[in-house]
Design a protein around this nucleic acid. Structure first.
Lengths: 229, 229
DNA sequence: TAGATTGTTAATCGATTAACAATC
DNA sequence: TAGATTGTTAATCGATTAACAATC
């Protein structure tokens, strides 16, 4: 009964396909081929077909994929066919920034799929009870309670580095399985829990390697254009 | 004379090693082994040694690595031993958020290495001439000019999706080789240019796949704990 | 010296790509 | 039917891991 594990690298491409399918809908054709999907996502047609094959058979040979059907299938696979509530812990500069960002995106896309920024948490008395970008701020003490009641399925960690592990552990204890972590720390992660790290300091530092050397002429061109992540 | 290309996945781990080495310095020992580095970064000791071997020989067999030496070598490799200026285009919600984030991090780490948020750009008359988190906002028209004069080696794109390709192309034309792109679009990227995508919408949507199903009991446990990116 | 740890090679693992039979 | 495009298998590519000789 156990399906073979789907590689995470495949899971990470699915939202990209979904985005293109959602943007595609209005424009005429109700059918799309892996070639067109490839052109619009930057993924090779073969890889798209391989990725989809992990989940079933969605196309017609000689024809392509029905846009609405494939879109609904991807939404179902990603669990975006239901409401998915996210909570954010740590309403500092970064936390507020993310809430504003989320509010911007929510209008466009997040809520088109089932994602909702549902609650924020902080220690600071002055922030509690307030709203940031339309999201209410609760005391961190209520985290376990609200994880279960709302419920919250994804937690975004925008707490200071020192607090990250403690908050993370508390969320895990309350049943959360998926995290987006902005704190620049190595978390101790138990089995079955998925954490994505968003650490811009590391991103920028690694980009410095590829940055132009303005002083002298650049002799060394031993890299190629590539889109990462 | 041409070195073999260093895989990007290796480049992305170097800042992590550098961070640990920088944090390590005060604490007693001036020597660190690949085993300790591994414990602190979550990378296997063998992989750390392999990664470093792309750039030369930095350790002593039977002993380990001199902390200060390895740190300086990594800073040099990543070009963080000199000043690296970054510019940001698009001072909307997300852009301002990033500038505040950068200001926070700058105090701690970014400036410890050579990274500086040096300039911001926007179209909006009301923003131009102002400062956000200590960074001056210039009109986008001055982008090519200031890229060359300051100069700016890394560009952070926080413009709306529609504007991203145009702004990107203009920066490339002015010689920028490294980008951090927050706009949710597939950019057309010429050879020799490195772009990292920071697209939280996609991250959250892929996390939904791993999120707990609260309705029914979760029968399917076909994933493992893993830290990605 | 004996013990420890590097640097590196070879083996393994996993993901991408090529290719094509099936079939609409 | 002929042309197109899927689904899938086999080949390739690249990255990680294991293992160990070199040597401090």
């Amino acid at each position: 009964m156990r399906k073979r594990k789907v590689p995470d690298v495949v899971i990470r491409r699915l939202p990209l396909y979904l985005r293109v399918l959602s943007d595609l809908d209005p424009e005429s054709s109700s059918i799309v081929s892996s070639y067109e999907l490839g052109a619009r996502t930057g993924v090779t047609p073969g890889q798209i077909r391989k990725d989809l094959s992990f989940f079933g058979v969605f196309g017609k040979q000689g024809v392509g994929y029905e846009v609405t059907i494939l879109r609904e299938e991807l939404r179902r696979i990603l669990k975006l066919d239901r409401v998915v509530n996210a909570g954010l812990v740590g309403v500092g500069n970064l936390g507020q920034a993310f809430l504003h960002y989320g509010a911007d995106r929510q209008k466009e896309v997040l809520s088109r799929e089932g994602l909702r920024m549902r609650a924020a948490f902080d220690q600071d008395e002055r922030k509690i009870g307030g709203h940031v970008a339309g999201v209410e701020v609760y005391p961190v003490q209520r985290l376990p309670e609200l994880i279960k009641e709302l419920p919250l399925m994804i937690i975004i960690l925008t707490v200071p580095a020192e607090a990250a592990q403690v908050v993370f552990d508390r969320c895990v204890a309350s049943g959360v399985k998926a995290f987006l972590n902005f704190a620049p720390v190595k978390l101790e992660i138990p089995p079955g829990i998925r954490v994505r790290h968003a650490d811009f300091t590391l991103e920028l530092e690694s980009l410095a390697y590829y940055s132009k050397e303005w002083e002298e002429d650049e002799g060394e061109k031993n890299f190629q254009s590539r889109t990462d992540q």
